[in-house]
């Protein structure tokens, strides 16, 4: 039963949502399947909210244990737990109208801590791209050479300095992105969509059970 119940739920819910995308009421009135599909979509949102709670419990247990046992790096775990509590309390207070003090504090915490931290993480990408490109882009064979030249042309075409060097770089970059790239993207998209469809069908019909854990 532990496996059958989730499989039945998956099948029923999946069919309702699928059929609601294809059929409608003959008289143009309210279609019961569409109504159910809407309700079920709302349930997904609610269940997702519970999953956040469940995951947070895991976070608290792991890091609470590190702090309690004073394992190496416990101060980081303590900072994490404190940050979760502080941000949650201020966020909830701001959201539920505890006054302009909390709204402003919430916005300031966001602008001065989360925003620069996130931007800093993203900025690391520029450095990693530089080191990875330097290491990987070698003209070892024909394919690698084509990729290398395409990358250089797009980089020159996308930055204003490229145009300063030669005014045709942007057109070449646009052509590369619009034509060969779009062709490849479409092919991968169609292939991945078919793969996704077959995987979804296997899950809907209960043929695929790997995600339920254990050996099939």
């Amino acid at each position: 039963m532990r496996r059958e119940i989730p499989l039945v739920i998956t099948f029923v819910v999946g069919m309702i949502v699928l059929l609601a995308r294809i059929f409608t009421a003959a008289d143009g009135g309210e279609f019961i399947l569409a109504k159910w599909a809407g309700e079920l979509t709302d349930w997904v949102i609610i269940v997702s909210a519970f999953a956040v709670g469940l995951a947070s419990v895991n976070l608290f247990r792991i890091h609470g244990d590190i702090v309690a046992r004073k394992r190496p790096g416990w101060i980081n775990s303590l900072t994490l737990l404190a940050a979760i509590v502080v941000f949650a309390v201020i966020g909830i207070a701001a959201r539920f109208g505890a006054g302009p003090f909390f709204s402003e504090l919430n916005q300031n915490l966001y602008d001065s801590i989360i925003s620069p931290l996130g931007a800093a993480m993203f900025a690391i990408l520029a450095f990693y791209i530089a080191s990875a490109a330097y290491r990987a882009f070698r003209m070892r064979n024909l394919e690698a050479s084509v990729m290398l030249f395409a990358a250089i042309l797009v980089m020159l075409g996308r930055a204003p300095v490229g145009e300063l060097i030669w005014n045709q770089f942007p057109s070449i970059a646009n052509w590369l992105v619009d034509i060969p790239n779009t062709v490849g993207q479409r092919a991968i998209m169609i292939g991945a969509a078919i793969g996704g469809f077959a995987t979804s069908l296997r899950i809907l019909l209960g043929i695929e059970r790997g995600h339920l854990g254990g050996v099939e």
């Binding site: 999953a51 895991n58 854990g213 254990g214």
Partner: peptide
Amino acid sequence: PNVFPLAQEI
């Protein structure tokens, strides 16, 4: 968070 219980169970 949705993937967490699945991964744990697997």
